[in-house]
Each structure stands twice: as structure tokens, then as C-alpha cells.
Amino acid sequence: MTGEPSHPVHSGEWRVSHTEREAVVERLSKAAADGRLDLAELDGRLERALTARTYADLAPLTADLPPDVPSAPRKPLVLQGGLGGVTRAGHWQVPAKVVASGGMGGVKLDFTQAGCDLPEVELEVHGQAGGVTVIVPDGWAVETVEVNPGLGGLKDKVTSPRLPGAPLIRMSGTGGAGGVVIRHPNSWERRKLKREQSR
């Protein structure tokens, strides 16, 4: 007798390591961030991943997820005020970087109803002659230390404290002649938003 098992151990019965459990946890977390899993599914699968003993325990947790390939970076959103001005408002998806150049007509950038799944957003502003106005919801934070006020100045009117999980907008650039204003929605904009939400 050799002391070896009478039948070979199937690979699914092999024991998993801490590193392999952590790799599955990371993949599940990314899938939830991409919207492939809801929070309840994520919690259940994470618990099973952290207590998995064999490959057979881990395999079903990611079987319905696509291969983990790097996602292509989203292109920056570039807004040019030109002669007539431009506004980005309503429902839109915020990319990792936005460039707003006021031109002659100015740029109005309204994040109030925008979708943002990023912890931080890079916003490059160039007030030029028309200026740039940035509107953020209550709870969002804005960092303006990298903005040169220029002739038009920089007016940061954001007063509400940053809420947990809310995005941080890191601004850079210059106010130019038209200046840069960062503020919350005014009373008229808030009333308009309430009317739209009540429909």
C-alpha cells in the first residue's frame, strides 16, 4: 500500500488560496461597479467567495460574468462655447474628464441630473470671453486650487458639505476674461427640477 487515495482528486476539489479568493472578490466588486450585479447579489457572492474552500466553490460565483478584460477609457467631453454659447444639462453620463471653453457665448455645465459613477471627475475650464458656469447638486464637492482666476475671476459658491459616495470635481484651467462660477441650482432651477420629477 502506498497511502495514496484510491481515486484521483478532481481539480474542482482542490483547495483555493487566499490570493485566489481575493481575485474573485475583486472581480465581483468590479462587476457590481459596472452594473452587472446588484448589491444583494454582490453581498451574497462575496460571502461565498470569502468562505470558499475549493475551486468548485469559487467557479459558480463568476460563471455568468464575461471575461475580465480592461475597459477602454472614455473620451473626454469637450464643450466649446463659440459665438452662441453651449449648455450641457438634463440627463447625461459624466466621463472622467470634461473640457469647457467659454468662447464668446459661454458654457453652462449642469451636473444636477447627470449620471456619475466615478469618485472623481477632472474638469478643465477656460473662461475666455463668455465665461463658464458650473452647476453641481447638493452634496457634490469641488476643488478649485488649480484654477487661475484670470481677469474674470473665480466664484466658488458651493456651500453644502460633501456627502459620502458623492463625486469630487477637480478643476483646473483659467477664468479668462469671462470668469468661472461654480454654484448649486438656484431657486428657479430647483422649482423646474421638482416639476420635471413630479411628472
Rank of each mutant, 00 (worst) to 15 (best):
M1C: 11
T2R: 14
T2G: 15
G3I: 00
E4Q: 12
H7F: 14
G12L: 14
W14A: 09
V16F: 03
T19R: 13
E20M: 12
R21D: 02
E22F: 04
R27V: 08
S29K: 00
S29C: 02
K30I: 07
K30A: 15
A32Y: 10
A33Y: 04
D34K: 11
R36K: 05
R36A: 11
L37V: 01
L37G: 02
L39M: 11
A40Y: 05
D43N: 08
D43Y: 10
R45L: 02
E47Y: 13
R48N: 02
L50R: 15
T51S: 14
A52S: 09
A52T: 01
T54R: 11
A56G: 13
A56W: 02
D57R: 05
L58M: 07
A63W: 09
L65Q: 04
P66W: 11
P67M: 03
P67F: 08
D68A: 15
D68T: 10
V69E: 15
V69Q: 09
V69P: 01
A72E: 15
K75C: 01
P76I: 00
P76E: 00
P76H: 04
L79V: 07
Q80L: 13
Q80R: 14
G82L: 06
G84M: 07
T87R: 14
T87S: 13
R88M: 06
R88W: 03
R88P: 02
H91F: 09
W92C: 01
W92N: 01
W92V: 00
A96W: 15
A96P: 04
V98A: 08
A100P: 12
G102M: 05
G103L: 00
M104H: 14
M104F: 13
G105D: 07
G105K: 10
V107I: 11
K108I: 07
T112E: 07
Q113S: 15
Q113E: 15
A114P: 08
G115L: 12
G115T: 09
G115Y: 10
G115Q: 13
P119N: 04
V121E: 12
E122Y: 10
L123T: 03
V125G: 08
V132K: 05
T133D: 12
T133K: 12
V134H: 05
V136W: 05
V136G: 10
A141Q: 13
A141E: 14
V142H: 06
V145M: 08
V145R: 14
V145D: 14
E146C: 05
V147A: 02
P149N: 00
L151E: 10
G152H: 06
G152P: 10
G153M: 07
L154G: 10
L154F: 08
K157N: 13
V158D: 03
S160R: 06
P161E: 07
R162K: 13
P164M: 01
A166P: 11
P167N: 03
P167S: 01
M171F: 12
S172N: 00
A177M: 14
A177R: 14
A177W: 12
A177V: 06
A177I: 02
G178R: 10
G178D: 01
G179Q: 05
V180W: 06
I182P: 13
R183V: 05
H184I: 02
P185E: 01
S187F: 08
W188L: 10
R191S: 09
R191Q: 14
K192S: 08
K194S: 13
K194F: 07
R195P: 01
S198K: 15
R199C: 11
